[in-house]
Design a protein around this nucleic acid. Structure first.
Lengths: 239, 239
DNA sequence: CAGTGATTCAAACGTACATTTCAAACAGGT
DNA sequence: ACCTGTTTGAAATGTACGTTTGAATCACTG
């Protein structure tokens, strides 16, 4: 039935992932993708059904490798008797992320850019898609961060995790431009690994920062309902 | 010649700013804008020339108020003999930003959302527009941060300022959704002021975090050229 | 109140998009 | 070699967009 022509799907996925990473999902047309992939325009709808599903397939190629790896790293940390400190928790991302380079050339950079696009472009279906498939893993991450920052109220943690997500996503979306500037002005060749390593101390310090009681803040007494809190932190963490 | 019908431009600007803030520039059509503003479709091109120029006009309404205020705050800090600490530098944003609420209801939130959209949507002309008009003011900010963090190499500062920009921009772009979650799960009504106040300790700690010498990092010796560095940090800071 | 320039309006233009259609080309099994 | 189901190809469909057009309407001046 099928054999030698499997690669049409691959050609589409490869072309799509690079164009998506460069220009975002909304600003990349199926015509650009099929032209670059040297396949017929109708192939995308034939093989993937729709543009939406193509976007999900492109991300899924990386997620199905990354997420199980992260999951097992999280389990290792959770199994420890002593609580982990925050930099160690964040550091577990490094290896699984860099292993994506073995999946595909520049895989790590591409995946992170795609993740950034998933947030900044309006792609509600991606949010749902990721959380539906990998919500359990994300739960473990939130738990680990909570354990490593026991002094932080849940609400503060919620905001800081999103601040962090913003740093990551924004940096990765504009990653190439930033790397070029860094190279030109500081003679520093910063690859994706370098950026990740620079992010960790920044994020660790930010997340664990002392809570500052602001003058103007009129906060309702923290009256939160426990279970929903964690679920929602993680739900909104996914794309 | 003109008198009572000035408000067509205002109606367009008001409708456009809210739709832009909600859905981004690319995903808001002139038809949506003119429908909401209850004006004719052709009015936008008649009064503003093009969609691009409308986008700039929407942002300009806030920038021309905010930036001079920031500029004078920066000058005050720069005039001090003792170096300022980082939280104080970042804190000067609070008042000028909140004053935008007097310009328009929910002005602060709207402006920050628009700024976020300016980054996440691909709007190269906005980058140029802001830097062209307000580059001098941004220079002063970079200088202040440098002074308050003398232990940081320029390249590290460069990256951390962008990490911070990502936090701000991303948080503001998804501000409403986050605020809703916070309200539902933590019984915390977090307005835009609350978010800004939460951001400051996070950003301060992140930017000023100790530099961590990563194992894997193979960095070329810091060989930077002084003037270009500052210029580029700020150039890439603008939208 | 006639005339003039600024504004509004409905309609159309040209372009780009995702998706559909259906015939042609292709494969593997018998 | 022939059928059968899978994949490709070129073309068309329908929708939405930003922009342009030219006549109609308005507001003001002389």
């Amino acid at each position: 039935m099928m054999s030698s022509k499997i690669n049409t799907q691959q050609k589409i996925l490869d072309a799509a992932q690079n164009l998506f990473a460069e220009s975002g999902f909304n600003d990349t047309s199926l015509r650009q993708i099929t032209t670059k992939a040297e396949v017929n325009l109708a192939s995308v709808n034939y093989h993937f059904g729709s543009k939406k599903e193509l976007i999900q397939a492109v991300l899924q190629r990386y997620l199905q490798i990354l997420m199980p790896r992260l999951d097992q790293e999280f389990d290792l940390l959770l199994a420890r008797t002593k609580p982990n400190n925050l930099p160690d928790v964040l550091a577990v991302f490094v290896k699984p992320l860099l292993e994506l380079n073995q999946v595909q050339r520049k895989g790590t950079r591409t995946f992170l850019q795609l993740l950034g696009r998933g947030y900044t472009d309006v792609q509600g279906h991606l949010r749902w898609f990721i959380n539906h498939h990998y919500g359990r893993t994300l739960d473990k991450l939130v738990l680990l961060v909570q354990q490593s920052c026991p002094h932080l109220p849940q609400s503060e943690l919620f905001w800081r995790l999103h601040f962090s997500l913003g740093s990551i996503v924004f940096t990765m979306a504009s990653n190439e431009a930033l790397a070029e500037i860094a190279l030109a002005d500081f003679d520093e060749a910063v690859d994706i690994e370098g950026v990740i390593c620079r992010l960790i101390p920044y994020l660790s310090a930010g997340i664990a920062a002392p809570v500052f009681n602001q003058v103007t803040q009129i906060t309702t007494p923290p009256n939160m309902n426990e279970g929903a809190a964690k679920r929602q932190i993680n739900a909104s963490l996914s794309v």
